[in-house]
Design a binder for these strands. Structure first.
Lengths: 189, 189
DNA sequence: TTTTTTAACTAACAACTGTTAGTTTAAAGT
DNA sequence: ACTTTAAACTAACAGTTGTTAGTTAAAAAA
């Protein structure tokens, strides 16, 4: 069986559609059609369109938060922690190709859960920033503007959902190594 | 006068709204309300909602394409060309904060102009890739995967529209230097 | 002064939106 | 055999959508 429950199937089908056109441009009739049923039938399994979006985004955001907490509290070097963050993004993204598009592009359409999402994101960014700042303090990272570093790293990691699907025959482990190298050592000779 | 024409005012007002909620979630009534007129009055100046999106996106995409052509055909070093590309993105983004959100998030809602937009983007990416590949060939850049380099650089530059507005009192020239340094030399000590 | 143009307005349209109510069918549980 | 549940259906709702038609008032051009 491909899906655990019918609700799960609705959520994953919706994620595919949301990724193509965005949450607002996808109708309940679009989702239903993709599943071969009528729009009203969706409501036997979910309570609202909004709930579908929440389920997609919040579960992903929580995965990031949980894993970041583990990385943050380990006693690895800053560089190693950053490598683990790269691996975290690549792994979650490659397993949730479609949902990551909603996380990045449709979070503002959350209603009840918007505040909670923003809290999770803020915490995540703060943890990320702490790792970088500690690395600079301890002379492990270059003495550059930590905000610029954070921006650059996070932008690349957040865009993975656009790029990973294009590379069908990708060796994930190799890619994590290559990406870490470029992000940490730059592109200079 | 803040706007050259009333049409220009509609386009710039729309860009602000599109940036917050995305093209599909913004209605003609929203745009009209933001301008203090009725939705039907917009049609004295523009032909369709679609036209507003096209005007925002295509003019920006053409700016990138034109400037890239100039950078590409100069006889600078690869590193200097890349620094110029960084400056190009920072400058266009800081002058078109809101429009850049549409360019990055709403291009798929283009209709007649979608094909043209995709052509411009493909050309731009190809030029970018050529600069990187030449840099590697001539031993100016690290011998890493050029696709990963391109992905990393482009992701960061395309996300500028999210970050620049947050830094109100930003020295643009200084930021271009800092960002170039991080992108080219990485974050390692 | 008269005419034309500009740019707003009201009213309405047909299509589409998320969602609800009530019904039907078949499988599962007793 | 009977009852309950799961999951589909049809029909409809009230509100919203982009857009058009026709009108009005004031400014610009003649």
């Amino acid at each position: 069986m491909k899906y655990e429950t019918r609700k799960d199937e609705i959520i994953q089908t919706s994620a595919i559609l949301f990724q193509k056109k965005g949450y607002s441009a996808v109708t309940m009739r679009d989702i239903a059609k993709a599943m071969g049923i009528k729009a009203a039938s969706l409501y036997n399994h979910i309570n609202s369109k909004q709930e579908i979006l929440s389920e997609i985004i919040i579960s992903l955001a929580e995965q990031f938060t949980e894993q970041m907490k583990i990385i943050k509290t380990s006693d690895d070097s800053s560089i190693n922690k950053l490598k683990q963050v790269v691996a975290l993004h690549v792994n979650i993204t490659s397993n949730n190709q479609f949902g990551m598009a909603s996380l990045n592009s449709d979070w503002m359409h959350l209603e009840n859960e918007l505040e909670y999402y923003l809290k999770l994101r803020k915490n995540y960014e703060n943890d990320f920033r702490s790792i970088i700042e500690k690395g600079i303090q301890e002379n492990e990272l270059a003495n550059a503007n930590p905000e610029v570093m954070l921006f650059s790293l996070l932008s690349t990691l957040r865009s993975l959902y656009i790029w990973l699907p294009k590379k069908e025959d990708l060796n994930i482990e190799k890619f994590i190594t290559e990406l870490s190298t470029v992000l940490i050592n730059g592109i200079n000779k």
